[in-house]
Structure formats: C-alpha cells, structure tokens
Design a protein around this nucleic acid. Sequence first.
DNA 1: CCGAATCCTCATGGATACTG
DNA 2: CAGTATCCATGAGGATTCGG
Lengths: 117, 117
Amino acid sequence: MIRGDGGKTLRAILDQICNKWTLLIVATLEQGTLRFSDLHHRIPGISQRMLTLTLRNLERDGLVSRTIYAEVPPRVEYALTPIGESLIPPALALASWAIDHVPQIEENRTRFLYDRR
Amino acid sequence: MIRGDGGKTLRAILDQICNKWTLLIVATLEQGTLRFSDLHHRIPGISQRMLTLTLRNLERDGLVSRTIYAEVPPRVEYALTPIGESLIPPALALASWAIDHVPQIEENRTRFLYDRR
DNA sequence: CCGAATCCTCATGGATACTG
DNA sequence: CAGTATCCATGAGGATTCGG
C-alpha cells in the first residue's frame, strides 16, 4: 500500500521529491560531482533562484552534500549522498516511463481536444 | 539520459504525473475499478474539486477511463487503462522509496535545523 | 563564481454553494 | 451521487539586483 501513516508525512515527502526540479537535479548529479555553474547550464530552463532553493532542500534532507572550497574565484561542489544515490533507480524508472509514453500521451491529448465539441 | 528533447515536453509530462494527487489516485486505482465517492473517501485530504480536476487530466492523457451509467442515482466508474497500469510499477517504486526513507529524511531535517545557529 | 534578497505574477488548490 | 461554478488564500517560481 502507498500509505504508511495517515498519508501526511509521506505525501509531504513525495511532494518534496516530485516537484518541478528535484528529480532533474538528482538525475543530473548521477554522473558525479558537479559545481553550481555546471548544474546551472546542464539543466535548461532552471533559474538561479530555484537551483539554489532546491539544492538547499536536498541538502537539508541529506540527499546532497555541499562542499565549499575557499578559493578565488569561489568553488562549490555538489554530490549525491548514499541516500541520494538510492533515489536514482526509482527516479530514472519514472523518467523512463515518461519518456516512453510522451508520444502516446500527446496523441491522447490532441484526440481528447478534437473529440469534444 | 533523462532528457529526450530539449526537456520541454518531458518536463511538462513529468510535472503532470508528479503532482500533488496523481500518483495517489493511480495507486488507489491499482486495486480495480472505483466510483467517484469511493475514490473520494479512500484518498484522505483530497477535495472534491481536485479529485475531479485530476481525474479529468488523467482521462485526457488516456491513463484513466471514465464510464457513466445512466441510472438514478448516477454512477460513474473510473479504471486504469493499459497505459495507466504501466505507470503502477515506477509509481510504487517511488512511493516505496519515500516510505523507506521518511524516518531518515525527517531526522536529517531536524538535525539540519539544530546545526544552524 | 556563488549566492542572498526583493519584487512580482500566476497557477495550485481549498471552501463553499449550487445543479441534474 | 457526481459533478460545476465561484471566490479567495497561499506559495511556487521568474526577473532583477546586490553582496562576499
């Protein structure tokens, strides 16, 4: 069953994981450690603000580690923790499902619009 | 890789799947056909409005079928289509991950708050 | 380079009341 | 029973500016 408690905390955490950017960031960090600017231009469309906020949440939840190097210019590197890495398989499973079914879903949507008068 | 195109359509579909209620509704329909009121009280916390809206989106995308019986009182039954059923495994994988890691994540959050001054 | 802070907009979503 | 319609609060998220 999908609900362990009343569903409160679970749904809260699912919302946290399943938001607009989290899965993409985790999937991008699968390749290994990346610094802020790398992430910024590897994830098209994300704003600096949302990248910062999402990384903070992931750090707070212990899914991502943040390492600061006191250099000039500054360098900050992000990497997945073991818990973060354990999220990779289910995240990729969902992403793969979406990729596999994008054409079918798009066809369904257009047909749905056409069938309604 | 997680991005098939520029990431536009994929991210749109992921947003659609990964919203506040979709996964819960799909997981609830795994058990079989259910009517509106059944869904309503099996998913604690959902409003009538959001249940209707989310079901419409799922119907539009072809993940859920909607059957109306011309009776008094009216009866409407919802069921997963084959595509909808194919979403069950990755959805449950993600839900299971969340369930398994809720305690650890909650501990990380409280420690994060405590460590910051 | 890496962010924090501010402002602003718009979608999400809850509460309520009404219909067939 | 199964919605639709309306109003309204909240927060996600983009653009921009400033700081270390």
